[in-house]
Write a protein that binds this DNA or RNA. Structure first.
Lengths: 160, 160
DNA sequence: AGTAATCCGATCTGCCCTATAGGAATAGCA
DNA sequence: TGCTATTCCTATAGGGCAGATCGGATTACT
């Protein structure tokens, strides 16, 4: 068994979400823009790498930036209107592709011809969690019902 | 935005599942072991790569192999008792890790301290689909209710 | 001007995904 | 015994990308 990465959450994505949560906190506190330096030191992220990620987030329209003295980054929308799915797509592209392609528009020979349905279900299942969970929700620890249900299932925290 | 792969289904995994479905079909038809060559040509997979994948599956105890003339591979258990999750783990290792680590036993600073709950929910959500979908189910096109529900939602097949 | 930021492009290292090659071991059959 | 089909094992290779860093250009506020 190779030590593959697929279906994992990358450092890039993890960093992006944590950075966004920092900005969400700043939005609540009504303090000004937050510098990359401030985020990096408080969340223990590599600064230059974080800069690149924030650049992606800005280009995707999720954050705004202010240059110069006392500049920094801020959420482009209220934290309650930004989902984790938005963040994932901004830094990683489309969710749950198969071999770099969309689950549909793949052609399978029987006996694998029902596979696309499963792949679509996998993607839909991810969307249900990521698209309905907002930065504000994570910040406050108030997650959607079915997300709480998923995470509080008896063996959800067990390795397998 | 970098063209990242994370949260994708790798070629390796896709091939593994398709190979397993071929073996499942052979199990139903009660024909003998299937050679890598036969699987490769019928599912259009690179033969040598497939061999390596089948090796993983054998080492994980999901398939048995017979050497020599008229040899090949066969499922080690009834197709109804092998889930896609089993296959994923055999070729990819644990599902939905975060930066190569398990979702729990990661430590986050506030304001990101509720993140592990979300990561666990993501993993649980994947498990719900992959662990309850069996090879026999995919083969027959008879998928678990909630998988069907996920895949038949209005926008499940749409890009986003 | 000075200072603190973002912004941009280049670069680097190493890993790992995908894939192939070559051959050794094994098993059935004529 | 040899022939053939097959798994099995090891090595290799290109290519890409993740993760990360550097240096400097640009912008903005005081």
């Amino acid at each position: 068994m190779g030590k593959n990465r697929p279906m994992d959450i990358s450092a890039r994505t993890d960093y992006a979400v944590r950075a966004m949560l920092s900005l969400a906190a700043a939005q609540v506190d009504r303090t000004g823009p937050v510098s990359a330096e401030a985020i990096a030191s408080r969340q223990a992220l590599p600064k230059k790498f974080l800069e690149a990620i924030l650049s992606d987030l800005r280009r995707s329209g999720l954050v705004t930036s202010t240059r110069g003295n006392a500049g920094g980054y801020a959420l482009a929308r209220p934290a309650a209107q930004i989902s984790l799915g938005d963040v994932f797509r901004a830094v990683d592209g489309p969710l749950a592709e198969v071999r770099g392609l969309r689950p549909h528009d793949m052609t399978y020979q029987p006996p694998a011809d029902h596979l696309p349905t499963v792949w679509v279900a996998v993607r839909a299942s991810l969307r249900r969690v990521l698209d309905e969970t907002t930065l504000a929700g994570v910040l406050a620890g108030e997650l959607p019902e079915h997300v709480v249900a998923l995470s509080s299932a008896p063996d959800a925290w067990r390795n397998r």
